[in-house]
Computed example of a mutant assay.
Amino acid sequence: MKPHRARTGAVPAAMVLALILAACGQAKLSGSHLDRNNATPRKNQAVTIGLLLPSSQATRWQQFDRPLIQRRVHKLCRDCKVRYVAGGADAAAQQQQAQSLLSSGIDVLIIGSVDSRAARPAVRQATAAQVPVIAYDQLAEGPISGYVSFSGREVGRLQGRALLKALGPGASRRSIVMLNGSPNDPNSSDFKDGSLSVLRGRVKIAKEYDVLNWSPAGAYTDMAAAISALGPGRVDGVYAANDGLAFGAIAALKAANVGPLPPVTGQDADLDAVRRIITGEQYETVYKPFSREARAAADMAVALGRGRSIADIATGTVSNSSLQDIPSVVLKPRSLTVADIGIVIKDGMYTTDQICTHPFRSACAKAGLLG
C-alpha cells in the first residue's frame, strides 16, 4: 500500500522537539510509559488509536490481527476509533505512514514494525507528541510504552523439538537446511536462538540462510541452492521459521523431484499451512492464538489513551536500548502437527468448511477432522 502523503505542520514541529529532547538526553523519559501511566485518568474519553501493521508475506495481519484488535477496541469503547494502515516490507515507507497517522491526531499508536531499529525515529516522534506507543509482535526500539508478543525463543524451541522428533533416533546422522527469518526482524534472532538451543549438536546443519523480508520466493531460491549444493537425497529436514518460508521450501523440493518430502517446520498456522500439514507436505507449524495478543494490545491502547496505568494488564516487563521495565505481555505458543491440528478449529481460528474444501476432504477425513 502506498504511504499517505498528507501532512500538517504539527509533524515537523514534533520532529524538532524530539531532536531537542534527544540532545538534552531526556528522550528516554519524556512521554514514556513512566509519564503516561501517571497522567490524570479520563474515564470515558473516546480514544483514536493508530494501527500500523506490516505486510511481511504473512496473511495473519489482515486476516486476524487487524479485525481482532478493532473488535476488542470497540467492545471496550464504542466511541473509540481505529485508524489502520497496512505497511509493506519497507521501513522508510512505514516511517512515513507513522508520520501520517500522527499528523491525523491519534492518541495512541500500535506498531508492528518492519524493522525494529528503523522504527526508532517514529517512536521518538510519537513520544515528543505525547502519543504512547505499543510495540506489537516485535520489540521496537525507542521509548515505547508497552509491548505485546509471543515468546520468540519458545517458538524456535518448539520448531527444533518437532524437527528432531520427525527425524527420529538417527537425527545426529542427518542433515538439515535452516531457513531463518528476515535479519531486519528482531524476532528472527529469537526464533533462531531458540531452535539452535535444541538442534545444535543433535543434527548436522548443512546449509543455513537468513531470508530477507520473510519472502517465500527468497526461501524458494535459497532452498533450491541448498538442494543443488547438497544433492536432492541429502536434505533430511528443513527448519523454516514461518509458514511462508515453508511454502517456498516445499515448492523448491517438489521442483527438484525430492520424494518423499522431508519434514518441514513452520509458524503462524496459516490456512494453506494447515492444509499442507493435513496432506503431509508440511510436518509442523507453531500456533499462536492471535486473539490473546490482539486483546492485550487493545486493552493497553485504550488504557493509555485514557491516561491510565497498564500495570494491571501487563504480566511482566522487558527492556530495549532506550528503556527498562517496559510493561509487557509475552504469551506462550504451541506446536501443532497433524495429530493435534484440530485445535485451530476448536479455538475458532478456522471452521472445518474453510479447511476441508473439496480437494482436501479425503485428507481431512483421515486426519479426523470430519465427523
Rank of each mutant, 00 (worst) to 15 (best):
S149G: 10
G181Q: 08
G181R: 02
D193I: 09
N187I: 06
A171K: 07
S195M: 11
S215I: 06
R153N: 15
V177Y: 00
G201W: 04
E154P: 12
G181S: 05
A171G: 10
L164P: 14
A206Y: 03
N187D: 13
R157C: 15
K165N: 08
T221H: 00
I144M: 09
S145V: 07
G170H: 12
K204R: 05
L212P: 08
P183R: 02
A217M: 07
L212I: 05
K204A: 06
A219L: 11
K207N: 11
G218Y: 07
D185W: 05
S197G: 15
D210E: 15
R153L: 14
I205Q: 09
R157I: 13
L179R: 03
N213R: 04
S149V: 04
L179V: 10
D190Y: 01
E208T: 14
A219T: 15
G170S: 15
S189H: 02
P186T: 08
N180C: 05
G218R: 07
A217S: 06
N184L: 02
I144Q: 07
F191E: 02
K192M: 03
G152I: 01
D222E: 15
I144C: 10
G152E: 06
L158Q: 08
F150L: 04
A171P: 13
W214F: 03
F191T: 02
I176D: 08
D222P: 12
S188M: 04
R157M: 15
G156E: 05
L164W: 05
L167S: 12
A162M: 02
L199T: 15
Q159E: 08
R200H: 08
A224L: 01
K204Q: 08
R161N: 12
Y147C: 07
Y147W: 07
S197V: 15
L196P: 13
A162I: 06
E154A: 13
V203G: 05
G218N: 07
S189N: 07
S188Q: 03
N184R: 02
D222R: 06
G160W: 01
D210K: 07
S172E: 13
Y220E: 11
S151P: 13
G218K: 06
N180Y: 02
Q159F: 00
N187G: 13
R161V: 09
D193M: 08
Y147V: 09
Y209P: 15
G201L: 07
V198F: 10
